[in-house]
Computed example of a mutant assay.
Amino acid sequence: MTSHRGTHSDLHSEQGALRAEHPGRAKNPVIKVLDLAWLQFVKPDLVASERFAHAFGFTTVSRTADELLLRGTDSGDPCVVVRRGPCSRYLGAAFRAADSTDLVRLADATGTRVEKLPEHLGGFTVDLTDPSGVMVRVVADTHELATLPPQSTQVLNFGHDVRRANAMQRPPRVPARVQRLGHVVLQTTRYVESLNWYLEHLGLIVSDFKYYEGQRERGPTMSFIRCDRGMTPTDHHTLAMMLGPSNRYVHSAYQVGDLDAMAAGGEYLRDLGFHRSWGIGRHIEGSQIFDYWRDPDGLLVEHFADGDLFDSSLEPGWSPMTVSGLAQWGPPATKDFLGLTPGREALRELVSMARSLREDNEFDLTRLHGLLKVTSS
């Protein structure tokens, strides 16, 4: 009989944890980060990157020959830092600590040092590397960007609840203005090791676990992870991680005002010839309305709106990992979104599968069979 102890079944999952399963949080983490600060990428063409960024809804903070800083309308840090380099790749994430004393505590616990960030960012950082080899920065006391004028959201009539009369609805076909960075999704060959590292060092907690059908006894293969700010609700996931045959960036997500902004902004992107990967729909884990796009270098980025917010009282949900379980409504997940479209990306993943099976990691033949079942579910 399935246990429902600690579940939140009516919110986003039908199952709670079984006895002795992963608790989804560390008992005594080193620190508890407040949020993502920014993501760092390398791109060969900053002009093309900025052109897409403006169409997607970012605002430029600054651009030099070697670096591009992009922001949303919310106050705080830039959302994205792009450095010029020979090929497009994800470098890592910066998380925001509560204050600089947390940086000292983290540095002492990890045998690293607190360093000054460049003057245009301000503040301090502790630079770490997660078990997958991805750079993780934890920052504090950075310069705070002022709030920009937000994009207007639509006034909606809900059935007989009339909030708009003698006025027409005409959302303009313009970029959906990004408000803030929401989350990043990563794939790793060392999923449980990496998960535990983030929980223990940064104090993150799991909102949802996913497992391969028929392999639950082997443990989870994906987790949606949020910040622990006590009784202050935070995004359902700030970081999501999944087991796979390679260590790679999957996508990053940026909040916009509402569905109309997202849809009209999508039409604007399509008019400019950019490629929609999947959308528009509504997710199950996190409940976000989503729309996925490819940037000029093929990296996947998401507009989202109306996501779930949880405080620290909710325990993780558990559910099987399926493609059909990615959305409550919307078009079927595309081959492009799933990385199954024939081409360089799919070929790289096939090569990674063969290599991973020969290496000492968590992605073994049984896990490969589980993943193949997921792609056909």
Rank of each mutant, 00 (worst) to 15 (best):
Y211R: 01
L70E: 10
L36Y: 12
R173L: 00
S324L: 11
A354V: 12
H12T: 09
Y90A: 02
F224Q: 03
I289W: 03
A109D: 09
M1E: 07
Q15E: 12
G230Q: 10
T59S: 11
L314D: 09
A146C: 01
E217D: 14
L202G: 05
D77C: 10
E67F: 08
E119A: 13
N247S: 03
E359Q: 11
V82K: 00
Q288V: 13
A17W: 04
D127E: 15
V192H: 09
L148F: 14
E285N: 07
R84N: 03
L46E: 08
V374P: 00
F56I: 09
L181H: 08
L269I: 05
R190G: 01
T341P: 00
F310S: 07
H143F: 06
D66W: 13
H236E: 15
L309C: 14
R84T: 07
H22I: 07
T64W: 10
Q169S: 08
M241C: 01
N28G: 09
V206N: 03
P342V: 07
G133E: 02
R218W: 08
D297A: 00
F209Q: 05
L68T: 12
P332N: 05
T73K: 01
L181Y: 10
G266A: 03
A107D: 04
E217H: 14
D291V: 12
A305W: 13
N166K: 12
A354K: 09
Y249G: 00
L347W: 13
L372Q: 09
G281E: 05
S319P: 00
S312Y: 12
H12V: 11
L204I: 15
L11M: 10
P342H: 04
Q288S: 11
V126D: 05
R83E: 13
T153M: 04
A55S: 07
F274K: 02
Y254N: 01
F310T: 09
P220A: 06
A165C: 07
S132H: 03
A53K: 01
M241R: 01
W318C: 02
V33S: 01
L195W: 08
L121S: 03
G219T: 14
T234V: 11
M242K: 05
A333V: 15
P118A: 12
L121A: 07
Q255M: 11
H120Y: 09
G111V: 15
K373Y: 15
M168H: 13
K27E: 15
A167K: 12
F95D: 05
L148R: 10
M353T: 12
D102M: 04
L269P: 00
V136D: 02
N196K: 14
